[in-house]
Design a protein around this nucleic acid. Structure first.
Lengths: 213, 213
DNA sequence: GTACTTAGATAGTGCCACTCTCCAACGGAA
DNA sequence: TTCCGTTGGAGAGTGGCACTATCTAAGTAC
């Protein structure tokens, strides 16, 4: 398969594919001559994954490269690769260390993690981007005076736990480690918009039920 | 309070506040003379909300303006304002009408909504951005060959429903309609990163539990 | 052999979220 | 009153990002 066919089958313009090749989001094709290269089905699949991460997952190109690189890092175990890929996922601004709102948020997050008995993230010694993202979001709620009591957060945490179990069940339907790692990345990222849109639909439904006279 | 103090208390640079004023994300201050204006506590609060939507909620400036304008539209009922604000929230690319993946995704989403008995969104005759975002995300999963059976989506939908109930309970602790509408906007947007980061933490935890030897 | 296509490199585009520069008008100190 | 730093407002400029267009030398198809 040549560039033109890869472009046609994926719906991605050739100029954009060239850009992704340059940015190392796609491995180079097999060089046939000095100026021609051949691409296979795995290139097509990878290209579709990249597009999904960028367009559906709203991920910056550089982040997608890091996530994919982490998920293929041969020097890591299967589990470490999954962790590294999730670690590289986009996250908002860092919480400000000197901010009392952030300090309160941090204490509360620690309490929630303790209550959920989630310790893997902490054992690593370093705090993960997801942890810092959580602290920053709760600090914002605190700054605006919106409620975020631990019981309410635990509701969210328990539901997140259920989702994780369902997602990992799906991952375990794949047999080989590389497939599983890719599945974790794809399912983590692509189920995020699913979850957010379902929540918005549910809220519209519920607020209609409560506030519509 | 002058611009400089508003800037200091919010941590937002004066140049950025001026930009937000120009973009009508903040109402103008009360003009004291031809070249001075006075800002109040409500400006500070609004500025913090705007910053949260943009930085924590990763929302484009133009979208934040629309969301806030919808939430304050005097010609709408309380419930319609909430709906209009959630309607304006950022969403990914539109699903492609001629794509068989999208067609299949649409049928499946309709099945899920029917099973959940969520009809408010549909009654409006038009399909909401959240609905289209959901279709686009599922179409992507389908294109990549990842599983998205209705039972699995129903797990997500039921959890989303539980979240919506918990969120609206929080909203009902506010007494006046304007407070409630702002609370819906703030809680919808600011709990999104909370939910996503908790899910990532839960996944890390669960995958450690399953795959770490 | 001639017209079209390709890979790869370089430069350019459009959008966005600020950020800078200016200016006339204040406002407080000397 | 005069000086000087500050303010609100407007317009232009900046840097980052995700492409997108152009160009060239080297194939390939008829």
């Amino acid at each position: 398969m040549r560039l033109a066919e890869l472009s046609e089958r994926s719906g991605v313009p050739t100029a954009t594919i060239k850009y992704y090749l340059r940015e190392r989001l796609l491995p180079p094709g097999e060089r046939i001559t000095a100026t021609q290269a051949e691409y296979g089905e795995e290139h097509l699949r990878r290209l579709r994954l990249v597009r999904s991460l960028i367009q559906v997952g709203r991920m910056p190109v550089a982040t997608a490269r890091e996530v994919l690189a982490a998920s293929e890092d041969e020097s890591l175990s299967q589990n470490a690769r999954m962790g590294a890929a999730i670690w590289a996922l986009p996250h908002g601004p860092e919480p400000d260390e000197d901010d009392p709102h952030a300090a309160r948020a941090r204490a509360q997050v620690d309490a929630v993690l303790r209550r959920m008995d989630w310790s893997h993230g902490q054992e690593l010694g370093d705090t993960s981007p997801a942890y810092r993202m959580l602290v920053a979001a709760i600090a914002s709620l605190d700054r605006l005076g919106y409620p975020h009591d631990t019981e309410h957060l635990l509701v969210h945490a328990r539901l997140a736990g259920e989702l994780a179990v369902a997602d990992l069940d799906l991952v375990e339907t794949y047999d080989t480690p590389p497939e599983r790692v890719e599945a974790v990345v794809a399912l983590t990222v692509l189920y995020e918009p699913v979850l957010l849109s379902l929540r918005r639909l549910a809220q519209t439904e519920e607020s209609g039920r409560r506030f519509e006279k």
